[in-house]
């Protein structure tokens, strides 16, 4: 039997989950990251007398990602809960031949959203790093990479 792949729980339309992720990415990864990185870069031009370190800049660019990750986790939990809300559709899911389908329906879009957010955050971080180097004389590549990894973890 050729089965259509369902990327979302039947009770939650895929477009709704995608919109939620786009909003989350926009708010947390793009806007919050930009604000954080921009603040750090402004400090670099001595607005408060202290230069921002590269870590301040790229770490700021990445900080919003963790909020986005929290949203992804919350939405995955919401997806699982949909099988127990207002009815027990979990009983129907447990009667289908596939054990993994419920996990695929609940996790696939949140994981895609998480990966998309991560890629965007890394791109933002690299952009900030480039801007930081452009504004100063930070030429030590090895330290740059170390700082990027520090920002990630």
């Amino acid at each position: 039997m050729k089965k259509k792949i369902a990327w979302n729980p039947p009770d939650i339309p895929a477009y709704r989950i995608i919109i939620e992720f786009i909003v989350s990415i926009f708010l947390f990864v793009l806007i919050l990251c930009s604000i954080q990185a921009n603040n750090a870069l402004e400090r670099y031009v001595m607005m408060d007398g202290l230069p921002a370190t590269m870590m301040d800049v790229i770490g700021g660019a990445f900080s919003g990602f963790w909020l986005h990750a929290a949203v992804c986790v919350a939405l995955a939990i919401r997806n699982y809960r949909s099988f127990y809300t207002n009815s027990r559709s979990i009983y129907l899911m447990k009667r289908t031949g596939s054990r993994s389908e419920i996990h695929f329906m609940s996790l696939s879009l949140p994981v895609i959203g998480l990966i998309a957010g991560f890629i965007l955050a890394v791109l933002m971080m690299l952009g900030c790093r480039g801007r930081y180097i452009e504004m100063g004389n930070y030429g030590d590549m090895q330290n740059c990479i170390l700082d990027i990894w520090r920002a990630l973890i």
């Binding site: 729980p9 009770d11 009815s87 979990i90 289908t96």
Partner: peptide, 30 residues
Amino acid sequence: ITRLSFATCEHSFFPNIDAKAHAQFYKDHF
């Protein structure tokens, strides 16, 4: 387990989708 079906007063349908979508789901799975 697909040889067994279940009707319960707790309900096991998907409340947010219509009957046509249920029929499609059942066609895809049973």
